[in-house]
């Protein structure tokens, strides 16, 4: 069971091109979502995707640029599904560009699921209990 999201992609292109596709709204919207991104720390913007009713996601991601290291690293907050007390998903998306083999390696890391959420993911991952409980229930039932 996962607690963070990680992806690595390779592009046979210079990092300046990949960087443009991460930071220019008209290029970002070609592959990701409609947006008003600007690579300036503190800039607040939104991504608009199709809603996913199955997970109660309205399709809007509320973001704020947290870090910009031109051509190397870009991170922004990524919050979705507003609730009465904040957002259901309150995470950080971090992009890292590394020159490699006549191209650019792009790493995506989405972290920051709340500590107690991580804790529960971990607990759910611990499948051992399910079996133990089943056994116990059988014991109780047969009494």
């Amino acid at each position: 069971m996962k607690k963070e999201i990680k992806h690595t992609f390779f592009f046979p292109h210079p990092k300046a091109i990949v960087w443009d596709y991460l930071t220019k709204p008209e290029l970002v919207s070609q592959w990701l979502m409609e947006n008003d991104i600007k690579p300036i720390v503190g800039h607040k913007f939104k991504f608009r995707a199709s809603p996913a009713p199955s997970i109660d996601f309205d399709g809007i991601c509320y973001c704020e640029i947290l870090e910009v290291v031109t051509l190397k690293q870009l991170s922004y907050s990524w919050k979705c599904s507003p609730t009465d007390n904040g957002h259901k998903i309150d995470t950080v998306v971090m992009w890292t560009l590394t020159p490699k083999d006549n191209g650019t390696e792009l790493n995506l890391l989405q972290t920051g699921f709340k500590e107690h959420e991580n804790e529960m993911f971990y607990m759910a991952m611990n499948n051992g209990w399910a079996k133990n409980i089943e056994k116990l229930l059988q014991k109780i039932s047969s009494n």
Binding site: K2, L32, A52, S54, F57, F121
Partner: peptide, 26 residues
């Protein structure tokens, strides 16, 4: 617990799809 996991899975798949799209554009 599955409902929590569904969220992560959704975004995991979401990024894979989007990054594949970026790759084909480039």
């Amino acid at each position: 617990f599955n409902e929590l996991q569904d969220f992560i899975n959704y975004f995991d798949k979401f990024w894979t799809n989007k990054l594949n799209k970026l790759q084909s554009i480039l």
